[in-house]
């Protein structure tokens, strides 16, 4: 079964001086799906999005949105899409309603359509009560909701969301996930970026893992996890033995049932054929290199394992998240 393609990129590349912000991106987004770009800071997610919404010209390669080339037919593309930028693009002095009224004119909506849609959207994002106060009185989450309402105003066929839940509290994140699912149910194609693994896992039908400007893997979360196969054994090693982690990794790598070993600050992740068969040998190796194990855990591959397997590092350090 072949599905309708909403977006297609072919060997997309954007360089800043000698730095390739995105390189050789080729992917397709199907109509009606939620497509995710997952990657750490600086991976090239926003750059990719900016090319797709016609704000950046690719250095080379091509991107086609709903049949129109983003470089040649930029104006046509802009009429069909909505965009929610990563930074809160809010004018502090305007009220929520004034933001929407301004954008209604910029999207050239007829007056009656604007009059109908604006209250509808304010209701959808739960901002009715504050709609006539200046945006400088809004909380971060409220600004984000206003951002999303702005992105939805043109009734787009494709909606681009750049890190829609960055820095939001848990409730607001869940709300936004809900909106995204509602939009999808209405048939809107959604392209979003994120560096939250759980978000990608929960929300995206398919995703591309981006790192260093390149696509490292692509598929549905389930496919990506199944593609890895086997199990993950995770060892947490006592701080006093941290110096011996490297030796243990070396000892493990030569074992036949071990496929890959990745070091973390507090231990090792070991990808194995089957945890039952591998565990005795792993424990024996730990004993032999006299690493004291604080915790041994094994599980089916998760999205973070997929990420590590394809990029060679974890998406973020294990230090507590710092809010911007």
């Amino acid at each position: 079964m072949s599905r309708a393609v909403a977006i297609e990129t072919i060997k997309l590349r954007k360089t800043y001086g000698t730095l390739a912000a995105v390189d050789d991106l080729t992917f397709q987004v199907y109509a009606g799906e939620v497509f995710g770009l997952l990657g750490p800071n600086g991976a090239g997610k926003s750059t990719t999005l900016r090319i797709l919404i016609t704000l950046l010209r690719p250095t080379s390669g091509q991107a086609i949105v709903l049949g129109h080339d983003v470089a040649r037919d930029a104006d046509l593309v802009r009429r069909l899409i909505g965009y929610v930028p990563q930074e809160r693009a809010i004018d502090r002095f305007l009220t929520g309603r004034e933001h929407l009224l301004l954008l209604a004119d910029l999207y050239h909506l007829p007056k009656d359509e604007a009059q109908r849609r604006i209250p509808e959207l304010l209701k959808l994002v739960d901002l009715e009560a504050r709609a006539d106060q200046p945006a400088k009185t809004y909380s971060g989450g409220m600004k984000r909701k206003l951002d999303i309402a702005c992105g939805l105003l043109p009734n787009p066929k494709v909606l681009f969301l750049d890190e829609p839940t960055l820095g939001l509290d848990v409730q607001s994140r869940l709300r936004i996930w809900d909106y995204v699912r509602q939009l999808k149910a209405r048939g809107i194609t959604i392209v979003m970026t994120t560096n939250y693994l759980d978000e990608a896992d929960q929300l995206c039908d398919r995703l591309a893992i981006l790192d260093g400007g390149r696509i490292r893997a692509m598929g549905s979360p389930a496919e990506l996890k199944a593609g890895l196969g086997g199990d993950i054994v995770s060892l947490t090693i006592g701080a006093e033995d941290a110096g011996r982690i490297e030796a243990l990794a070396t000892a493990l790598r030569v074992l036949p049932m071990v496929r890959a070993v990745t070091a973390k600050p507090s231990g090792l992740d070991i990808r194995v054929e089957s945890s039952e068969k591998a565990l005795p040998a792993v424990l024996e190796a730990a004993n032999r290199t006299s690493c004291r194990l604080e915790l041994v855990d094994y599980h089916r591959p998760r999205l973070d394992d997929v990420f590590v397997a394809h990029t060679g590092h974890a998406i973020r350090s294990e230090f507590p998240e710092t809010e911007e």
């Binding site: 009429r79 965009y83 809160r88």
Partner: peptide, 16 residues
Amino acid sequence: FDKENGFLERLMSTPI
């Protein structure tokens, strides 16, 4: 200021 806080980008992403 519009350029710095991303508002300009939002304006430029519309079909104006």
